[in-house]
Each structure stands twice: as C-alpha cells, then as structure tokens.
C-alpha cells in the first residue's frame, strides 16, 4: 500500500529533467496517442516505441529496473482483456471443451490480447517517465500552459500539498485502530491467535453481519474523523490565504524548479 506514498519524482539533472515541462507533457500524451492509434499486431512498431521509452529512460539517467518494475504494477487490469483470446473470431489454435460447448483460443484473439497488453504497457512507461523526470509543481505549470483551467490546477496543487499530511493522519488513525483491536484471523486457513475464545470464521461471530456492520462503523468513524479534520483544516488554510490577500482569483508566478 505504501507505493502510493512514494513520490514518483526521481531527482536528477539529465537533459530530460531539464526539458520544459509543457514539452514533456505534450510529448508523453503524444506518445500515448500514437501508441493507441497503432494497429493490432504491429510488432515492429511496438518494438520501435519500446526502444523510444528505453532510450528516454537512459537519457534521463533512470534505472531501467525502476521503469520496468513500476510499469508492471499497472498491468493486473490486463485480466479484463483476457477474454478476447476466446471471443475474437478467426482460425482456432486450440479448442477447450466446456461441457456441451467448446471455446476456442484463436490466433487473432491472442494477437489482439497481446497488442492491448503491450500498448498499455508502453503507455504506462511514458506516464512513468513523465512523472519521474518532472517535479509535480512543474507539472502544474505545464497544465496551466496547456490551458487547463487555473482553478482546477490550483485545486490539484492544494490536493498534492496536503496529500502527505492527510495520509499521515489516516495512518495514525489506522495505527490507533490496530492498537485497540484484537486481530481476527484473516483467512480460514490461518490458525486463530493463542488465547481463549477467538472466534473462527466459520463459527460465525467473526464474519457475521453484526460484526461486519461494526467494522464498517469503525472504518466509517475513521473516515468521518478524517473528513471533519480536513474540513477544519480547509477553513484554516482559507484563513491563511485570506490573510495574505487571497480574493478568489488564482494568480501565479510561474517559475520552474529544474
């Protein structure tokens, strides 16, 4: 879960880092667009695109392992596309009997599936390269430069600034809950903790509706708590903004970090 809270930015001074953030944003989007427009099964093109991402990673002085590992994380969604292997019409490679039906794995289906997976993987790499070589404040500048409404960009900026602060608060709430709760076994296969009377899942109490509702209530209480604190913090931030002259208009002096 902590992958969320690792800043994707990798500090550096490479030519890619120093490239104008608006250019990088446009290039990344352009790459993803081009990748999406490429036909299925265009393996040579995919290889070419991959060489582009690798080249960029090298130019950016990023560890290749970093790029490949992070890009693999986005792939579980691929399972959503798995069925095309079976449903795309074409010459069958093999048939799997399922009762009175038979589903077939078609060549066309495998091509389609692999193309989707590869194109997705390439696109994720482009997104990672963008985030890894561009500090987020510069991404905000880039967004304003491509005419995303200033108000929206300002909201993004504030969200980013307080992401870590609130994540810390959430973690504290989680730890407080853990400190106060007896651990229930997490699966029917793990033995219950030592001691008396710990309900096993199939004995009802641990997983019954009442217990579920209670746990939902505890979680909901944490969310509610976090929400109220966030609301109050929002008011305090507004007071601080007003104290320095904020009038509702978003004004910025765009300066880049790299």
């Amino acid at each position: 879960m902590h992958i969320h809270f690792v800043d994707p930015y990798q500090t550096g001074q490479s030519p890619v880092h120093r490239l104008n953030p608006r250019a990088k944003l446009v290039l990344a989007l352009g790459f993803i667009l081009v990748t999406a427009a490429m036909p299925l099964g265009a393996w040579p093109v995919y290889v070419l695109l991959f060489s582009l991402t690798i080249a960029t990673a090298v130019l950016a002085e990023l560890r290749l392992g970093f790029l490949l590992r992070r890009s693999a994380l986005a792939l579980p969604f691929v399972l959503a596309a798995v069925t095309v292997i079976f449903t795309t019409p074409g010459t069958a490679w093999l048939k799997l009997p399922l009762g009175s039906w038979a589903i077939s794995v078609t060549g066309a289906g495998v091509v389609r599936f692999l193309s989707i997976a590869i194109k997705s993987w390439l696109s994720v790499q482009a997104a990672i390269l963008l985030a890894a070589t561009t500090p987020f404040p510069d991404l905000l500048v880039a967004m304003r430069a491509v005419k995303i409404p200033r108000l929206l960009v300002a909201i993004f900026g504030l969200m980013w600034r307080y992401l870590f602060v609130l994540a810390d608060e959430a973690l504290r709430l989680l730890r407080a809950r853990e400190a106060r709760s007896a651990k229930l076994p997490t699966s029917p296969l793990t033995p219950p903790p030592q001691g008396r009377g710990m309900p096993l899942p199939w004995q009802g109490r641990g997983w019954g509706l009442g217990s579920l509702l209670w746990r939902g209530q505890v979680a909901g209480g944490m969310v509610g708590n976090l929400f109220l604190r966030s609301l109050e913090r929002g008011e305090r931030i507004y007071a601080a903004m007003a104290a320095r002259g904020y009038d509702g208009e978003v004004r910025t002096l765009d300066t880049l970090q790299t």
Binding site: F136, L140, L158, R161, V165, A240
Partner: peptide, 8 residues
C-alpha cells in the same frame, strides 16, 4: 502547515 499551502 496551514500557512504553507503552495507547492513550493
């Protein structure tokens, strides 16, 4: 933290 609300 309330007073430093900008990205940089």
């Amino acid at each position: 933290d309330d007073q430093l609300f900008c990205p940089t």
